[in-house]
Design a protein around this nucleic acid. Structure first.
Lengths: 110, 110
DNA sequence: AGATTATATAGATTACCGTCTATTTGTCAA
DNA sequence: TTGACAAATAGACGGTAATCTATATAATCT
């Protein structure tokens, strides 16, 4: 059983977490900036960020008293790819993904 | 907010449901056949199948007193694609998926 | 050092979810 | 029509998870 895809799906299975991921998709945001965007308390946001961190879905950078988060796109791509390969092996897209994951994880040709 | 990706993720956010999807990935199985494979009661399996049905992840065919289920690969591909486009727009794979979804949902050229 | 701000953690509460047993509904065969 | 089997639904129960308030930890500023 592919446990990783279950962990991944659980991490995404909440509207608040998807809103957070959308916010930090292509940029680094500090926790208080995320709090300012969503209508929730700071501990709630920290809780969700901890879950996302455990799922490997965020990258973290500490800077002074600020902690910046951004979405780990590579891991998300890898997990979506595994879902496609596991559950849609007959789809054309799966072979595309398969090739992509192969070439993007192996070292470059000389 | 993309509600569909939340519904999709919730549907996958359980090990039992992923095991069911794996079983019915490329074939039609009756409920009692699924029950026989997993170590759970028939109502539990029916409950999960209902959730998967509401998420659009299964196709259903009635035949006499048997009800056959199979994984709806097209819908799974579409949802994974939306995850990638939403959350990994900078990834190479996203443009591949984008093109794939465009061409596979529009009518064929004459 | 003390005050202030940023974030994480602890603990409580409430709602939701996975599973079970019991029952209902629907289909077929005798 | 009755009996047997397939599947869905109802209701109960225990566990998990989302949110909050309160507090702890850590860094910065005066």
């Amino acid at each position: 059983m592919d446990k990783e895809t279950v962990i991944f799906s659980k991490a995404l299975a909440d509207e608040t977490r998807q809103r957070i991921l959308k916010l930090i998709c292509c940029r680094w945001l500090a926790v208080n900036e995320i709090v300012a965007e969503l209508n929730l308390t700071q501990p709630t946001i920290s809780h969700h960020l901890a879950l996302l961190r455990e799922a490997g879905l965020v990258l973290i950078r500490q800077e002074g008293k600020f902690t910046y988060y951004t979405l780990n796109q590579a891991h998300l791509v890898s997990c979506c790819g595994r879902l496609l390969i596991n559950f849609a092996p007959q789809s054309e897209i799966s072979t595309l993904v398969q090739n992509h994951l192969d070439t993007s994880t192996s070292p470059k040709e000389p």
